[in-house]
Design a protein around this nucleic acid. Structure first.
Length: 573
RNA sequence: CGGGGUGUAGCUCAGCCUGGUAGAGCACCACGUUCGGGACGUGGGGGUCGUGAGUUCGAAUCUCGCCAUCCCGACCA
């Protein structure tokens, strides 16, 4: 590709709207342009990267024997009503209607359409298992799109669906897909980690996420420092503490605490050790409960895990915190003065809280706390559950080692759906026994456009992007110095360019009449992995200059046999 | 949805407080000088100042509404 005919539009300044490195660099390099909130155009440069990622995904899935197809983006409401998701999916579902007033949505995912396709196509267990996939534009009306294509509303996704006669077959394909995903992410050249995950609203049984590791990631994952055990922090269980509750040593007493409405204030103003504090969170109760609210207790320095909390039978799902007003009406005191003693609401304590003694919590009286509270003596022992987030240093739930944490960007997710959709949509096949069987299903997603952003997040420096070679927009940048003035340079560059193209190299030949500094900066910004410079200086000594994007020093390549030497650098010989 | 911020040229921003008829840098066009790490000079094109109303002799500037956009939102108990 010649730069003179390629739309390269780089900027020196960082657009004000971009917060994180990948978003800034994608805008500065001209890979993407925003059309409107959460909706982006992929420019020629960005599209080359997107296509590279897509090709790796497609190639591995095809190799595994899965079949590509392409489904409509616009889907009729009736299909979604069959599974009740027309309502359940909520505001993320972009609903549209046609001229006759018929309702549709722009597909955020394709379980319904795929299940409909398969129930019409597949009649016999002999045709199973079968897996279809597509690479297609999805739309989810995110509450808060951000970070460019990292969390956009319109995005490119690979979604695959497998269909099975029974759960055993589903399990086989699930683990096969797990391996395929591992190969895909390995091939992109990114550092990733798979973790056990919450299957979330989609439901189902088993689920794993694949995360690209990056400090700016929105997800936190936890893993054992010695075993393979890893899970999203959302669902990482916390092991029951192995110790007994210490005996009470203090009497419970009421303390006026007008200055303490937060745990931090309690600690700083009254010298209470934070691990002796308990915070009380009031959430809405599930509809079938007698009480309207439930109190959840976690230690003052712990974070409530909302996923664990909403799985409690007593709590509403999705989790909803009580408002200030509701708390005052139900308890008689406001946030900042709440605690288990004298509380008339059902109480569920984190398992660790139940083992605390001599602790401090709000008195349910405005501006008062109880110090030296002990279970059984001052207040009945509560129901307990695992309610808090795991943190670094906790024992690994598999009993091996301690947990470490890292931040990640979720780029892949695989689920065992079971029969949730096939049952609702009556997707059945005839079995060996001559009877109808509801098919078992798996679904498997990869955020293709998100991978591009994640790759940059993981691979950049202060000069720009440092593409992993498998997904770089070009392999090599060929930069002639002052070609307009020097016939020799121009000739040599043109010749080398032609030879490299012949050899199948994806070369970006910068034939623009620009000062060298501009070329260097552009090439480093857009992150082309290999760079070859041709100048008068080098031609005099019979050499080309070579530099790898992540290096800081040049090396020389003899002009004689330069193509062969370059191919070696590119790993193509 | 709640809170906060911002809307002025393609981009980054100044001007607004204290009303007087729109600016800079980058980018773009032309010419010249430059030419191995984002050159310089001269000349030029480009903005109904988000939008609607109001106040005023006069509004980018003051007032109100609307729209768009960005950031934050259990961690408080």
């Amino acid at each position: 590709m010649k730069a003179s005919i390629f739309h390269l539009f780089t900027t020196r300044e960082t657009p004000a709207e971009a917060e994180i490195a990948s978003h800034q660099l994608m805008l500065r390099s001209g890979m993407i342009r925003k059309l409107t909130s959460g909706i982006y155009t992929w420019g020629p440069l960005g599209l080359r990267v997107l296509r590279k990622v897509e090709e790796i995904v497609r190639d591995e899935l095809n190799s595994a024997g899965y079949q590509e197809l392409l489904m409509p983006a616009v889907q009729p409401a009736e299909l979604w009503q069959e599974t009740s998701r027309w309502e359940k999916f909520g505001a993320q579902l972009l609903k549209i209607s046609d001229r006759a007033g018929r309702e549709y949505c722009f597909g955020p995912t394709h379980e319904e359409v795929m299940t409909d396709f398969v129930r019409n196509e597949i009649r016999s267990y002999k045709q199973l298992p079968i897996t279809f996939y597509q690479i297609q534009t999805k739309f989810r009306d995110e509450i808060r799109p951000r970070f460019g294509v990292m969390r956009s509303r319109e995005f490119l996704m690979k979604d695959a669906y497998s269909f099975h006669i029974d759960h055993t077959s589903l399990d086989d394909t699930y683990w096969e897909m797990y391996e395929v995903y591992s190969r895909i992410f390995t091939r992109t050249g990114l550092h990733f980690r798979s973790v056990e995950a919450d299957s979330g609203a989609i439901g189902g049984h088993k689920s794993h996420e694949f995360h690209v590791l990056a400090d700016s990631g929105e997800d936190e994952i936890a893993f054992s420092d010695v075993s393979d055990y890893a899970a999203n922090i959302e669902m990482m269980p916390v092991a029951k503490p192995g110790y007994e509750r210490p005996a009470a040593t203090e009497e419970m007493r009421t303390v006026d605490t007008p200055d303490a409405h937060t745990i931090d204030e309690l600690v700083s103003a009254y010298g209470v050790p934070i691990e002796k504090t308990v915070k009380t969170l009031i959430v809405h109760a599930a509809e079938d409960q007698e009480a309207d609210f439930v109190a959840l207790l976690v230690r003052g320095d712990r974070a409530l895990n909302p996923i664990k909390a909403e799985k409690l039978v007593q709590a509403a799902c999705p989790l909803e915190f009580a408002s200030d007003k509701e708390i005052r009406e139900a308890v008689g005191a406001g946030p900042g003065s709440l605690g288990p003693v004298g509380l008339t609401l059902p109480v569920i304590a984190d398992q660790e809280v139940a083992l605390m003694s001599d602790f401090t919590a709000g008195a349910n009286i405005e501006d008062k706390h109880y110090f030296g509270i002990n279970w059984d003596r001052d207040v009945a022992s509560p129901l307990t559950a695992d309610l808090r987030n795991a943190i670094e240093g906790d024992a690994s739930p598999d009993g091996k080692g301690v947990l470490q944490t890292a931040r990640g960007i979720e780029v892949g997710h695989i689920f065992q759906l079971g029969t949730a959709y096939s049952e609702a949509m009556n997707a059945v096949v005839l079995g060996e026994d001559g009877k109808s069987h509801v098919m078992h299903m798996g679904c498997y997603g990869i955020g293709v456009s998100r991978i591009v952003a994640a790759a940059i997040e993981q691979n950049h420096d202060d000069r720009g992007i440092c593409w992993p070679e498998p997904i770089a927009p070009f392999q090599l940048a060929l930069l002639p110095m002052n070609a307009k003035k020097s016939y020799r340079v121009r000739e040599a560059a043109e010749k080398l360019y032609a030879e490299l193209l012949d050899a199948g190299v994806e070369v970006f030949y910068d034939d623009r009449d620009l000062r060298p500094g501009v070329m260097f900066n552009d090439m480093e910004l857009i992150g082309i992995p290999h760079r070859v410079v041709i100048g008068e200086r080098g031609l005099d000594s019979g050499a080309l200059e070579y530099r790898y994007r992540k290096d800081t020093e040049n090396s020389e390549i003899p002009l004689d046999g330069a193509v062969k030497a370059i191919l070696e650098k590119l790993g193509m010989s």
